[in-house]
Design a binder for these strands. Sequence first.
DNA 1: AATTCGGGGAT
DNA 2: ATCCCAGAATT
Length: 310
Amino acid sequence: MPEVVQEDQAQSLGRKASYWRQALRRRVLNWFGAHARDLPWRRTSDPYRVWVSEVMLQQTQVATVVSYYERFVARFPNVETLARANEREVLKLWEGLGYYRRARQLHRTAKQVVENHGGEFPSDFESVLSLPGIGRYTAGAILSIAFDQRHPILEANTIRLLSRLVASREDPASSAGTNSLWRLAEDLLPRKKVGDFNQALMELGSEICSPRSPKCAECPVSNLCEVNRLGLQTEIPAAKTKTNYENVNEVAVVVWRGNRVLLRQCREDERWAGLWDFLRFGVSDSGNRRRTFIAKTVADWTGGFDRHHR
DNA sequence: AATTCGGGGAT
DNA sequence: ATCCCAGAATT
């Protein structure tokens, strides 16, 4: 019976995947137990402090955050003291960290927590997610670390780690790539010690599974890792497509006739496709031939003003 | 989907 | 020099 055979294969694959996940959870957690760095925010499960650390750590390296975090929670030991502070002082303690919107939103959120949640940091996902400056990553991190709730996380370290574990060729920056990584992160979660597990993945990504030359020889999950098996560490994840900025010198010519102004509609194959613009010229080449060309083009367009204007 | 927000660490 | 960092919000 084909159906029975298919069922057996599916069950077999399911058992394999289940074994793989369990082995991975166990090894990741054991490794973390032995190698976790002693970071100040790991000495507490106070949701307020976990929250402060997570916001400070957004796009900011651990080494940079430590001293800022310690100074901040010393001055504002709980959500009430932060809510009562004035914004200038909060910003002053943030000075040098960058992304200053985070400080303002942290302050706003503290006030909201006092106002709407009786000063107790909310513990349900939707409430936390709705707070200013808290997205899917930060909400999952706070709830898993502070309350051991079963929420996945996905950020710089685990994007790299998970992409390599399954040798994903998808671009992690694309929405499809991001979606499959979130799904994987969710599949991997253990039932207990979720916060430890999430932190362990990040620690592993940061300390072992580094961008350029990952230390696979020291990695506790190297023999569960598809990239390691294939030797594709330098290929995966795909390099970020860097936005290239080119300096452009342009001159725009504004031609008036009465209360009307001359515009042209950009071709589909140029920048501002389909949009209306002044006559615009690159001036990287400022030689005479270029000037002649510009003068002639302006004359042509000006001559046809009545046909082309809008 | 692409940009913006930033200062500093790692290579 | 260049890449990258415990992302979120906006357009």
